[in-house]
Amino acid sequence: MRIDLSGKRAIVTGSTAGIGFAIAQGLADAGAEVTITGRTQARVDEAIETIKQKTPDARLGGVAADLGTAEGCQALIDARPETDILINNVGIFGPRDFFETDDATWEQFFQVNVMSAVRLSRHYAQGMKQRDWGRIQFLSSESALNIPTEMIHYGMTKSAVQSISRGLAKTLAGTRVTVNAILPGPTRSEGVLNMIKEAAEKEGVSQEEMEKRFVLENRPTSIIQRLATTEEVANMSVYAASEQASATTGAALRVEGGIVDTMA
């Protein structure tokens, strides 16, 4: 199978690092014109330059905006009024005791992880419907199904975007616009590796050993028994964005290494 996205425009939110960056790289490699987004112009420019080093003929643009706000989402919409592929990837995470998680933190996670995707999908899905072609993806997580006790506020947001994904897919029934949720597990993204590095330094062990311990202690049902790579997650996203995935919609596409112990 050869995925060719030539002539397609894509927006990947939160794509200056981690899973979002890997998805942007994958879409660019497949020929899509990709808009990179991040909170600062410096990070956006750096990501664009890094992709161009690997894929010199990549068609790339960038928008710097805080998508955790309505104003930031509108700035992106103003800069890119239309797109064929929308990857709602931007998100924040971090462990915190439930009893010490205040209202402001709950609200922050909801605005960044959920409302950014709602605002952008609400706009871009209308154009996709009119043109009768489009791909919308919501980056959920195995934490949407396997709610982590140390990050209930995060798991809530990932359950929410999975619900929105399914509902939006049904709203667009009968069109050639597909909507899916991508469910990674623990992944070797910048944020996760920084968290593991801090834990390794605290425990006085190597980062490699801490990665193994993290999976075995925190996700003991993992079948692959390791962190996934960002490229492995991106591969699923790029496929779901392709013409070949035209009958895949309303789905929760799991790239979580078998952590969720169900066959459904």
Rank of each mutant, 00 (worst) to 15 (best):
S116F: 04
H123R: 13
G204I: 01
S189G: 05
T249P: 03
A264E: 10
L67S: 08
S237M: 09
I23K: 10
N113E: 06
T230V: 13
M1G: 15
I23V: 05
R166D: 00
G68E: 08
A228L: 07
Q74M: 11
S163I: 00
R176A: 00
E208K: 14
M115I: 07
V112C: 04
I51S: 03
S121K: 14
Q207V: 12
T105F: 11
E150M: 12
T35L: 03
L145N: 12
A251G: 07
A234T: 06
N89D: 09
V238L: 08
G167L: 02
G250Y: 05
G127P: 03
V161S: 02
E211P: 00
A70R: 15
W106N: 07
R176C: 00
E243H: 11
R254F: 10
R188T: 01
G18T: 06
V114H: 09
V205R: 11
V179C: 00
I182C: 01
A22M: 01
D102I: 05
Q207T: 11
C73F: 13
I87F: 15
R226G: 03
R131C: 01
T248Q: 14
P95C: 07
A228G: 15
A79L: 08
R219G: 06
E82I: 12
P184C: 00
I87R: 15
V215P: 08
L216C: 13
S159D: 01
S15F: 02
T178M: 01
I182H: 02
Q162C: 02
V112I: 14
F93C: 12
S143C: 09
T35V: 07
F93G: 13
G257Q: 10
T13Q: 07
R43F: 01
G174M: 01
A10P: 04
A264S: 12
W133I: 00
G257D: 02
A65L: 05
R43D: 05
A42Q: 11
R59K: 15
A75V: 14
G68T: 08
S206Q: 07
A264K: 13
P220E: 06
S116C: 07
S116K: 11
T101K: 12
R254C: 04
S159T: 06
G257E: 02
L183K: 03
F99Y: 15
P186L: 00
R2H: 15
K52V: 03
A79T: 12
I259T: 09
E190C: 01
D29Q: 13
D57Q: 15
S116Y: 06
M236Q: 13
D57V: 12
E107K: 15
R96F: 06
Y154G: 01
E232C: 06
N235A: 13
I36V: 06
V12K: 14
L5Q: 09
R119S: 02
K170L: 02
R219V: 12
W133F: 04
S159W: 04
D4C: 11
